[in-house]
Amino acid sequence: MLRYLLIRAGQGLLVLFGVSAIVFFSLFLTGDPAAVMMPPDATTAEIASFRHAMGFDQPIWIQYLRFLGHALTGHFGDSLRYQQPALSLLLQRIPATALLALTALAWSSLFGFVFGIIAALRQNSALDLTIRVVSLLGQAVPVFWLGLLMIIVFSLRHHWLPSSGMGTAAQLVMPSLSLGAYYFAAITRLVRASLIEALGQDYVRTARAKGLSEWRITVRHALRNALIPVVTVQGMYFASLMGGALITEIIFAWPGVGRLAVEAIQTRDFTVVQATVLFSALLFVVVNFLVDIAYVWLNPRIRL
């Protein structure tokens, strides 16, 4: 098992290396960063001297090697726009995104499990139907649509919640609700489906025959097995959680990594784009590694 995990870790590193290459080279197709950064009426000479100062005039592969070397030591260079190290900009934004993503993940997982279990245990009841409709809707509406709708209803119409910014608990409510809606729906559906399946398995029937309580059967036996598919998809969902956070952060003016990334792409702030994309790739690799471990732990039948 240790060997398996070591291999997975090595593969993760390889992925990061590949992502760095993709990101670095695709960015340099965008054109001349110096021309963007200088004011419209700058002379050609001014642009040229700026380009030289920033190292944009070196061959691309030299820039890449230098980038890799620096990235390994955490130096992504200074943001062209903020005149600060890209990494420190990123680090400043991480707590905000982490707060948003974890809040969304927490409520959606919690309620997803609760509603999924209820729906599975009361299969085909009116409650089940309601939960299924809600979860279908949750997966069907785009994050930004839900976010804008909530702003209209809760901020404009009723003045219950602030529409933007970060700092108070009230400001966290709408962004985390709209970001978590999809995961809540997805997890509800998954838990329901896999629990229904697990409840139909032989070992559950055996447990029932032994006269164990329904609660014990659900929690002790069925749920553990139902968890496996849920855990597996968590890793996949995580990447799109990052993507969803990106749009949520823009709508609610949430000062997180996603907004940093979009603004950096728009202004061609190369160093910051590289840092944020590599960061999200790193996060993805780590999360999937953890999912691998959880998977092994949950499913002792897998012998690796």
Partner: peptide, 22 residues
């Protein structure tokens, strides 16, 4: 590994990046 790489970049970020380029 290509699959992993593809999945490791949030789609939307990748698409924004590419559309911004081309």
């Amino acid at each position: 590994r290509l699959v992993d790489m593809q999945l490791a970049i949030p789609f939307i970020l990748l698409i924004l990046l590419i559309v911004a380029v081309i």
